[in-house]
Structures are given as structure tokens and as C-alpha cells.
């Protein structure tokens, strides 16, 4: 198999493996055919020339977490936001794929709003399981972030011809199960997609991966297949998730899946680490495994390019 980059990761390997460190990975999807262009630290000029718009993804900021794996999650979130703001391709808006807070405490949400607000960007949130563990079972999150949403916080919006869908899969979790969308949300999704042209590019974002990354750790969503079935007829579907604090990507048919890094701490590699808990990095290495993602939509080609940028090049 052809080697696509000097690190010796072949194309299949790069698509299926988790990326731990190193510089950004540029990944484009054109006509449903994904291609790793190169491993790089900055967006190449040709990607920018055809840019329709770019949006940023941040995830898993876990404000309130202060342990040896990262004693200052406020500072790393601020650094991530500064990186988003400083990007050459100014993002049109930002999405946050959940676990804003560590323990759903008002003070943690307040701090997040202050730091994320410093970007002056519109931010579209979906909750992580850490955001809905207040006494009132998610009220703190929904009161603050769910004003224009349906049900337990899901919604859709359009931006320059791209249809964005924020899904919520952290409520009503079942014993022995993984993430959960639920019948009400799936019915809403079916209705939302009804009548949409199959050529409309779709971006779906949710906290827990919408495909099974690793069942033993609950890294998947029990009823995600029902959502993916509804998305099958569309020519360009990009699914963006968080939760697992590492980059993982794969392509199935016209659907490209991608998880973002955390801005707080890395988690272990499935099957290798003893558990899904925070991973302690060697001195000076933490920022090589934290970061942000930037997604560029090239209009006319239905191509999305995802660039993951660590806070510090490894």
C-alpha cells in the first residue's frame, strides 16, 4: 500500500488509527471519497483558495477538573480559544461537542462562558454527560444553552447551504448501554431531514461518537444506526464527535466520522490503557495531545477538510 506521509502511516492506517501527537492532519472528503492529503501543521494555500467557510470545533473542556493530568483546564481552554481566534481562516462560528464542565456546576459553566466568549464567535453547543449531572438532571445545561432547541437540547441550523444538526446522546442512559438518542429525537431527525435534497451537505455533531469506537468502554451510541440510516441517502455527511479525547476517524459510504481532541486531558487508547480515565502525559507533553479542529467547507464541491491542530506541535 502506498505511503502517504513520511511517518510511514499508510492511508488506511491514517484513517482508522487514532492520532496521538504530531502536527495537524488534513483530511478532505470530495464526492464521498475521503483522502488524507498530508500531515501538516498549517492549512495549505490551495485549500484556502477554494474556501466557502470554515468553522471550528472544540470539545471536552471539563472546566472544574484540576488533577495532575491537567491542573489548569481554564488555561488550556483559553489557549485553544486563542488558537481558534488566531487562525488564518477566520471561523464563521464554533461548535462545542460537550463536556463543557466537569460536574455541571454553575461556576464551571460561568467560567466556560467567559473564556469561550472571548472568541466573540457564535457557539453551538451539545451537552456531554458531565454537563447534565446537576440535581435537576440537565436543567442547568438546558436553561443556559438549550433556549432555541427541541426536546433535551437538539436542534438544526443552516449555514451557506450546509445543514448542521446538533444531536444529544447523553440523557436517559441505560444500564449496560452506551450513548442514547431516544425515539423522540430520532422522530424529530426524520422530520428534519424530510424533503431535504440528497445533495445537501450535512454536518451532524454530538458528544458521544455516533459509531461504536469501543463497546467495552461505552464509546458508541446504542441507537445511532437508526440516525445513520436516515442520513444514508445524502451524498455528503460529516459526523463530528468528542468524548474520547483523541482523534479517531473513519469513512463508511458517504459518511465521514471524526472525533476531536479535548482541550483538557487525553484519555487512554482503547484496549491498551487500563481504563477510559484521564491519561498522565510526560512532563511538557500535555499540550501535544490537546487541541482544536477546524473544518472547511469548499462550496460547489461538497468537500469538507478537517484540520486538527494541537496546542503544541509534538
Amino acid at each position: 500500500m502506498a505511503k502517504d506521509n513520511e511517518n510511514g502511516v499508510d492511508r488506511r492506517g491514517a484513517l482508522e488509527c487514532m492520532v496521538w501527537a504530531g502536527t495537524g492532519l488534513l483530511w478532505t472528503v470530495a464526492g464521498g471519497v475521503p483522502k488524507v492529503q498530508q500531515i501538516l501543521g498549517t492549512t495549505p494555500a490551495n485549500a484556502q483558495a477554494a474556501t466557502g467557510f470554515t468553522f471550528a470545533q472544540i470539545s471536552d473542556s471539563h472546566l472544574g477538573f484540576a488533577r495532575p493530568e491537567n491542573p489548569d483546564t481554564n488555561a488550556t481552554l483559553q489557549e485553544a480559544i486563542d488558537r481558534v481566534v488566531a487562525a488564518k481562516d477566520k471561523p464563521a462560528f464554533m461548535i462545542h461537542t460537550g463536556d463543557i464542565s466537569h460536574l455541571s456546576k454553575p461556576a464551571q459553566f460561568d467560567t466556560a462562558d467567559k473564556i469561550i466568549g472571548s472568541s466573540k464567535l457564535d457557539v453551538h453547543y451539545v451537552p456531554g454527560e458531565h454537563d447534565v449531572i446537576d440535581e435537576d438532571n440537565g436543567k442547568a445545561y438546558l436553561d443556559r444553552y438549550g433556549k432555541n432547541s427541541k426536546g433535551k437540547g437538539w436542534y438544526a441550523f443552516d449555514h451557506q447551504g450546509v445543514h448542521f444538526i446538533g444531536l444529544v446522546n447523553v440523557f436517559d442512559l441505560k444500564a449496560g448501554g452506551m450513548g442514547n438518542l431516544g425515539a423522540e429525537q430520532l422522530a424529530w431527525l426524520a422530520d428534519d431531514l424530510k424533503g431535504k435534497s440528497a445533495s445537501a451537505p450535512i454536518v451532524v455533531f454530538a458528544h458521544i461518537p455516533l459509531w461504536t469506537v469501543y463497546q467495552d468502554w461505552g464509546w458508541g451510541t446504542d441507537d445511532s444506526m437508526q440516525a445513520l440510516d436516515l442520513l444514508k441517502r445524502f451524498g455528503s455527511v460529516t459526523v463530528l464527535n468528542g468524548h474520547i479525547h483523541q482523534i479517531f476517524q473513519k469513512v463508511e459510504g458517504n459518511v465521514a466520522f471524526h472525533t476531536a481532541r479535548s482541550t483538557a486531558f487525553p484519555q487512554g487508547e482503547p484496549g491498551k490503557a487500563p481504563s477510559a480515565g484521564p491519561m498522565l502525559m510526560p512532563e511538557g507533553k500535555l499540550k501535544t495531545v490537546l487541541g482544536v479542529a477546524s473544518v472547511t467547507v469548499k462550496q460547489g464541491t461538497h468537500a469538507l477538510a478537517i484540520v486538527d491542530t494541537p496546542l503544541l506541535a509534538g
Binding site: E129, L173, A175, G176, G177, G218, A276
Partner: peptide, 10 residues
Amino acid sequence: YFCGLHPHMQ
């Protein structure tokens, strides 16, 4: 019983 955050834990 199970963990409310990680329901695979039982």
C-alpha cells in the same frame, strides 16, 4: 445498578 455517566459500568 450502573454508573449514570458510564452505563457500561454495572
